[in-house]
């Protein structure tokens, strides 16, 4: 429900959307240049395990996950320090479906923004990976 029509005083819900795009060759180049320092700074163990495979295949998955992290930041709209990249995790189910798990600063920002649900979609084609994130958040009724 967006722009809810509940009783007076109830919390309406609104939608935020974030999207981002990452060039897969840039991820390959960063892995070649910075190695594990790059990977460890950005990605959780689960994310790295989810993107196992030949370098080009792994980089496509990682590029999509980096895009997802940036898309989450766009929906969280931090006023100051941005959350650590690893505090935004793309969780991949055995079916291949992906969800988001927030911890630390990202979870705090989501709580402050009244985010009640997050959805993510990842895709890649050729040299490009894209992520779209949708957030439902509470919209407090106006005072007075």
């Amino acid at each position: 429900m967006a722009d809810g029509e509940g009783d007076e005083g109830t919390m309406a819900q609104r939608v935020r959307v974030g999207t981002d795009i990452t060039a897969i060759p840039d991820v390959i180049a960063s892995i070649e240049r910075f190695g594990d320092r790059y990977l460890d700074r950005l990605f959780t163990e689960h994310e790295r395990a989810s993107c196992a495979g030949p370098p080009e295949v792994a980089a496509a998955g990682l590029a999509a996950r980096f895009a997802a992290k940036e898309a989450v930041v766009k929906v969280l709209r931090p006023a100051g320090a941005r959350p650590a990249w690893r505090s935004i995790e793309v969780r991949r189910a055995p079916s291949g479906a992906c969800d988001l798990a927030l911890t630390g600063e990202a979870a705090r920002l989501a709580s402050e923004a009244g985010v009640t649900d997050l959805g993510v979609s990842l895709t890649h084609e050729g040299n490009i990976a894209v992520a779209v994130v949708v957030a439902l958040h509470d919209d407090p009724p106006p005072c007075g």
Binding site: D20, T22, A23, D26, V27, S30, R33, F34, R37, Y38, R41, L42, F66, E70
Partner: peptide, 11 residues
């Protein structure tokens, strides 16, 4: 400068 490029700059 993109967000991803800023990661490389940082490192």
């Amino acid at each position: 400068m993109t967000s991803h490029a800023s990661v490389n700059v940082m490192l």
